[in-house]
Design a protein around this nucleic acid. Structure first.
Lengths: 193, 193
DNA sequence: GCTAACATGTTAGTGACTAACATTTCTCCG
DNA sequence: CGGAGAAATGTTAGTCACTAACATGTTAGC
C-alpha cells in the first residue's frame, strides 16, 4: 500500500515538471527554456528532471495514441482498400482524442511544429507509428513480412496525416481537424483515380 | 586572381574535413566520432570545422540535388497527373546522380538511415525539398498559393521516395534504386485505382 | 527505532556548439 | 621589397543537453 503513495507522488512530480515545462515553453519558447529552468520551476534538480523524462523533447512528445489507432486499424474489415482502412481508423481514433483534448492537442501540435528540435523528434516518432501501421495493415507482427506495397501506402498515409495536422495548426480557427484529415485522405485517393 | 587560389584552398580544406569525417564515421560510427577527432584528423581546430560545416550533421547531409529536381519538375508537361510528373522528374534526376555516384550515394544513405541524429535531420531537409516540390508543381513561388491538394500529393510522393531509398539501402544488392523508385510510385498509383 | 530500498541531490564530466579575441597568412599597393 | 589591411585560423572560455558516481535524505516493513 505504501507503494501506492510512492507511485502517486511520482506521478504528481512528473505532472508538475511537465506542467511547468509547457508553461515556460509557451512563455519563452522551447529553445530559450533550459532544462535547469524547468527543474527549478518544478522544485527539483536537473538530474531528477532527466529521471522522469529521458530528453527535453520527451516532455512534449510523449503520448499513448498509438495503441488506440492500432486497435482501430486491426478491427477494420479487410474488404476495404488499404487507404480506406487507414482513413477509417484514424478518423475513429482521432474523434475520441479530439473531443476530449482539442485545445491541448492544438497547443501541443503548434509547439512541436514550431520548434525544429521537436519537429525532428516527431519524425522519428512517426517512423515508429508507421511501422505499427504497416504491421497492422499487413496483419502480422514481423516487420520483415510486410510487403512493399503496404509500406508504401503506410508511408503515404502518415505523410498525409502530418500534412493535415500542419494545415490545422496553421489554420485561423477555420476547419476542424477530423474534417481536415478526412478530406486529406479523400484528396489523396481522388488524385489517383 | 588571388581570390581563386583562396577559394580553391578553402574548397580543399572543406573536402579534407569531409573526407576524414566520412572515413571516421565509417570506421567507428557516427555517434562515436567527435568533432574534435574529425578536426584533428583534418589538421584543423574544431572552430574551423564549424566554420565550414554549421553542424556535425551537415558534413553528411549537404547535397545539391534539389535544383536538379526542380528543373526537371518544372519542365514536365502539365497534361500529366501530379504523381506522374513527380515520378518522371525524380526518375530523370536520379538517373544522372545514380550513374555518377551510385556507391557513394549508397554509403551515404546507409550512414544517414543508420544514425538517429542524421535521420532526424534528413526529415528536416526533406521538408524543404517538399516545399520546393509543392511550388514547382503548383507553378508558383509563393508557398501560400499552393493548394492543399498539391501539398498532399507532394507529401505522399516524398514519403514514397524515402521508402524506396530505405528499401534500397537495406537490399542485399538485389534491386537497383531507379527501378525501386519507379516501382514505388507505380504501386502508389495502383493502390488507388 | 532500525535497516534496507528508493527517490533525490551534488558534483564533475563529455560533447556539440558559440563568441571574443589573438595570431597567422595572404593580397595588394606604393 | 615591405608594410597596411583583410581573410583564415587558432585559443580560450563559455552555455546547454545529457551522463555517471557517489552522497544524502525519506519511506517501508519489520
Amino acid at each position: 500500500m505504501g507503494d501506492d503513495w510512492r507511485e502517486r507522488k511520482k506521478a504528481r512530480t512528473r505532472e508538475r515538471i511537465q506542467r511547468e515545462a509547457l508553461r515556460l515553453f509557451g512563455e519563452q519558447g522551447y529553445d530559450d527554456t533550459t532544462v535547469a529552468a524547468i527543474a527549478a520551476a518544478a522544485g527539483v534538480s536537473h538530474t531528477t528532471f532527466f529521471r522522469y523524462f529521458p530528453t527535453k523533447e520527451d516532455v512534449v512528445l510523449g503520448d499513448d495514441y498509438d495503441p488506440l489507432i492500432e486497435e482501430a486499424l486491426r478491427s477494420r474489415p479487410r474488404s476495404e482498400g488499404l487507404v480506406e482502412r487507414v482513413r477509417g481508423a484514424v478518423g475513429e481514433g482521432l474523434a475520441a482524442v479530439y473531443a476530449a483534448d482539442r485545445d491541448a492537442l492544438l497547443a501541443r501540435v503548434r509547439l512541436v511544429l514550431g520548434a525544429p528540435a521537436l519537429r525532428a523528434r516527431l519524425w522519428e516518432q512517426m517512423q515508429e507509428t508507421q511501422s505499427l501501421f504497416e504491421r497492422a495493415l499487413a496483419d502480422t507482427d514481423d516487420p520483415a513480412e510486410v510487403p512493399m506495397r503496404v509500406r508504401i501506402v503506410a508511408a503515404a498515409c502518415l505523410a498525409v496525416l502530418v500534412t493535415a495536422l500542419t494545415e490545422w495548426s496553421r489554420g485561423e480557427g477555420g476547419a476542424e481537424l477530423p474534417e481536415l484529415v478526412d478530406d486529406a485522405f479523400l484528396q489523396l485517393s481522388a488524385e489517383l483515380a
